[in-house]
Design a protein around this nucleic acid. Structure first.
Length: 415
DNA sequence: TCTGGGGTCCTAGGACCC
DNA sequence: TCTGGGGTCCTAGGACCC
């Protein structure tokens, strides 16, 4: 059997952990620059505020119902997530971290409802985050099981026969792996519920849809296609860092500074994972809702030799960016994605490299900078192209880094 | 005025090879 | 007038996920 653990309203639950007074009250978390709603407490969901709604569109309703808002504090959420995952692993053994708030794990055929209940209790006691747990034959059905659990007390074991009954009440759009496009197409072909989808002849399915949809189909029929695997950070195919500006800019040095920040961040990640990149994709973009939205540009750079050297990546990227930049265009966003990743240890030095001694390892200067920044805070030591500070981020409602910054540790008074 | 960020996998079509 | 067949690899774009 496969289990899925899913943290309830995760970002909101993290904020409530340090603001217990907000329990039972409407709370929402905003994306970067306080742009969109990215997490909602049940009370906020009940107000009809949708996931991803632009904040300016729901501001009035938030004001009216005294919704407490937070700017996203990913540093905090990542740390709390790690604690949840660690606790889960202690309970169920190895698990696959699927996202910041979800993990799959394998469990015995005869797992009891008491055991499932216990997983929830331990996480609540050790970390303080409410979670839902679903158990079923396949990952896709485990998703359904946890969705049922969310409505019925926090946990559920979904048997094949129970699923057969319930499938008539589940819309195709509620199934993991069937998105908007596929759901629309299914509806046009007369299939609205999971049950109707499951009756469709397999042979025709493969023709009309891709293998992805076929896999979902098999999973719904109880045949496991997606294995519980080690989906660890180390096995990732790419690392990205991108961000919108609070306001658009036409200034080239603003763009350079921002892009340099992203490069620095990605290079640190590479070294942390002991990986090298062989391909770098950079982009500068305009507002996707504005008149200039086609004016952005991007470039794919194949590196001469794989590297995790900040200076090398900066130099290469900035050179390309200057080619993309056009004056008088209001830019809104920039970022970088590195791919073609390989373990540092696998590198074959370039025969024609100028400095063959240096090739296999990260630059010593970078490693020193990494350790200084780890100790005294990100950006303490940085390349000059990164202008001072963190830029003009619009995150007025950010909570403190309660668990990752010595200065932010909360104090508790007993009365 | 204001509209997130970071990933995965699949597919079609082009370049190239013998 | 006639103009092969069978591959691989890469890339861009789409669909999906949280």
């Amino acid at each position: 059997m496969i289990g899925l653990l899913d943290c309830n309203n995760f970002f909101v639950s993290c904020e409530r952990l340090f603001r217990p007074d907000l329990e039972g009250k409407p709370v929402a978390v905003l994306s970067s620059n306080d742009g969109c709603i990215v997490a909602r407490s049940q009370e906020v969901k009940d107000l009809g505020i949708t996931m991803g709604a632009p904040y300016f569109q729901v501001k009035d309703i938030c004001d009216k119902h005294h919704v407490t808002l937070f700017s996203g504090n990913l540093t905090l959420y990542r740390d709390i997530s790690a604690r949840v995952m660690e606790t889960l692993a202690q309970e169920v053994g190895k698990c696959e971290i699927y996202s910041i708030d979800e993990a799959f794990f394998s469990c015995a055929e005869d797992i009891s409802i008491e055991e499932v209940h216990r997983i929830r209790d331990v996480i609540m006691q050790n970390v303080g985050i409410p979670v839902s747990v679903g158990i079923a034959n396949t990952k896709t059905l485990a998703k359904q099981a946890s969705a049922i659990g969310k409505k019925t007390g926090g946990y559920h074991i979904l048997s094949v026969s129970e699923w057969e009954d319930r499938a008539k009440e589940v819309g195709c759009g509620e199934i993991w792996g069937l998105g908007r496009q596929t759901t629309t197409k299914l509806r046009e072909m007369g299939m609205c519920t999971a049950f109707e989808f499951m009756q469709f002849p397999l042979s025709q399915l493969r023709q009309s849809f891709g293998v992805g949809t076929q896999r979902v189909y098999n999973e719904l029929h109880g045949t496991s296609v997606f294995e519980v695997g080690a989906n660890s950070e180390v096995s990732r195919q790419s690392i990205a860092s991108t961000r919108s500006f609070a306001k658009t800019t036409t200034n080239q040095s603003d763009l350079e500074s921002a892009l340099a920040g992203h490069i620095t961040h990605v290079a640190e990640k590479l070294r942390e994972r002991k990986m090298l990149t062989s391909k770098m994709h950079i982009h500068i973009q305009t507002n996707r809702f504005g008149d200039f939205f086609l004016q952005g540009g991007s470039a794919e750079i194949v590196l001469q030799e794989p590297t995790a050297d900040t200076a090398v990546l900066l130099q290469t990227a900035l050179k390309e960016m200057r080619k993309l930049y056009m004056s008088d265009v209001p830019y809104k966003k920039t970022g970088v994605t590195v791919s073609g990743l390989m373990p540092e240890a696998y590198i074959t030095p370039d025969l024609f490299s100028q400095d063959i001694e240096k090739t296999p390892k990260s630059n010593a200067l970078d490693l020193v900078a990494d350790s200084i920044n780890a100790r005294f805070g990100a950006g303490t030591l940085r390349h000059a192209v990164l202008q001072g500070g963190k830029g003009k981020s619009n995150a007025k409602l950010r909570s403190k880094c309660y668990t990752t910054n010595w200065g932010d540790i909360p104090s508790v008074k007993a009365k």
